[in-house]
Amino acid sequence: MRQISKKQGINLRPGIKVTGKWHQKEYIIKKKLGSGAIGSVYLCEQQDGKPAALKISEKGSSVTMEVNVLKTFQKVQGNRLGPSLLDVDDWIDPQGNRYSFYIMEYLRGKQLSTFVSSHGEEWLGILMLQLLDDLEQLHQTGWVFGDLKTENLIVTYPPPRIRWIDVGGTTQIGRSIKEYTDFYDRGYWNMGSRRAEPSYDLFALAMIMIQFYYPNRFERGTDPKKTLFHKLRQTPPLKKYEPSIIKALKGQYTSSIEMKAELAALIMKQPSSFLQTKQRNHANPSMTQKKSRKYQKRKRTKHHSVLEGVGIFVVVLLFYFIYLILQ
């Protein structure tokens, strides 16, 4: 019953065989994929040789709660929400310690930030539209993602598709957010409650967009709200999304679909963004900003010359008409 653990988490070496106590299925550990507040995730091989992800923890109750969430997702039609759940079981290690684990679909892909920096910044907006679709579906079923952050998102491809991988924070609407990360939490920025509602996720989504340009994040300072808007205004690549980001931060969207519509409209308005991010190297964002600005300037002058041409044509035509009338 007591869950005070002095163990330094669990560490499984590649090659270890994990056998379920209840269902007797065997999994061979391949490598560690990551670890979080609740347990660690490993890549493993199932008995039929297929890869899967194994999440294991000594906190049995937390594992059970995550499994509950994954099961709810399973019921959603189409089931694009989160990885699908394959098995739930306990494992008793050779020392007699009990661990709870579950097996889920292994999503092979890139981290959101890695994908966007290598494939072009125009993907940021587009992937966010995908994410808004998924969030809308999730909210419709009565749940809020909660701990929405860059690290919990993965892009599988081809075709590029955003997927979420850690569902530990998923909370029923109306309850208190189960798990969150300061930087993405509107409560931390003094900009709202920690009650689970769609707008909570939309705030976090806006923070994901901001975070892409601040990989090391930033402190909230003495006036969190001011700091946040200042940082937003300081980031030219976010300019085209700004009206939508601001609304999301202020909690003015009541649904994902609403935000999706407005964000999509903003992205469509800027076809040049597809061209300007053709260059693949985004190691230095300030460089690309400079380049894109130069590009926009060039584009504007081109516009000017076209307008000039039309103007001259109209004036000439006018003179011709006057000439005809006077005749």
Binding site: W22, S61, N68, K71, V88, D90, R98
Partner: peptide
């Protein structure tokens, strides 16, 4: 009988009750 002695399927239902109570 404690929570850990239940098979994972039933454990889920019990944890839902615990979560409800916590909320």
């Amino acid at each position: 009988q404690t929570l850990e002695e239940l098979p994972p399927e039933q454990r889920g239902e019990v944890m839902e009750v615990v979560e409800d109570l916590g909320e």
